[in-house]
Amino acid sequence: MRSLQVSLLCGAVAGPLFTLAYLAEGATRTGYDPTRHPVSSLALGEHGWTQTANFLVAGSLTLAFAAGMWRAPRPAGGPLFGPLLIGVWGAGLIGAGLFRSDPVSGYPPGTPDRLQYTTLGILHDAFSLAGFAALIVACFVFTRRFLRAGSRTRAALSAAAGVLFVVLLQLSGSAFSQNADLVDHGGLLQRAAVTVGLGWMTWIALHLLRETRVDRP
């Protein structure tokens, strides 16, 4: 039981650690504007290894969380879909760390605003999009689980997180495509989306931790 709770705790700390790391990096990186540039761009340049490590650590913690969900007495989302989707999100974070994104919106300084696609950048986007999609679907899988358990408030919160996550990701994607009205706010919109997604995962992890304590003999 102790190892199970450690695995679930990994899901609770993954989001806050990831967020604190990229906030610290963004505040100290020369030429980087957190309101304009994406989190992934922190992996570019001389100190880019710090954000690469951030992706890898967050992904590893998320995979540990998915394993804990699988072993939990009442796995959220059923015996397969909840842990599987969270596992895909974790793998997406690791893939985003292994493959660096392409420069966008003028960072690093001297690079063009519009994306110039490379193989590494395409792989980064593919892993990121797969992870985002899995996390979005997970929100609605949990919505169904909470409804079946009779918890309408939790179900509504989970569904709202999924919808808000989609909307914010769409807006940030439009900003990074150089939409004139949004481009200067792309980083802020993406950070809001990531905060919603990671905050939702932290909430679910804490909920499962409480469940395992209740079930413990």
Rank of each mutant, 00 (worst) to 15 (best):
S7G: 01
A12H: 07
A12K: 06
G15W: 15
L20M: 13
R29A: 14
D33Q: 10
P34I: 01
V39G: 00
S41E: 13
L42R: 04
E46I: 08
E46C: 01
G48A: 11
S60I: 04
R71H: 07
R71C: 04
P75Y: 02
P79V: 11
I86D: 01
A91M: 14
A96Q: 12
F99I: 07
S101Y: 00
S105W: 01
Y107W: 14
G110F: 10
T111A: 05
Q116S: 12
Y117S: 06
T119W: 09
T119M: 05
L120M: 13
D125H: 05
A126C: 09
F127D: 08
F132V: 14
I136V: 15
I136P: 00
F140V: 03
F140E: 02
V141K: 00
F146K: 03
R148L: 11
S151H: 12
S151Q: 13
S158T: 08
A159G: 11
L164S: 15
F165H: 12
V166M: 04
V167Q: 05
L168I: 08
S174I: 01
A175V: 10
F176Q: 12
F176N: 08
Q178E: 15
V183D: 10
D184N: 12
G187V: 03
R191N: 11
A192G: 09
A192T: 11
T195M: 00
V196F: 04
T202K: 02
T202C: 07
W203F: 10
E211A: 08
V214A: 13
V214S: 09
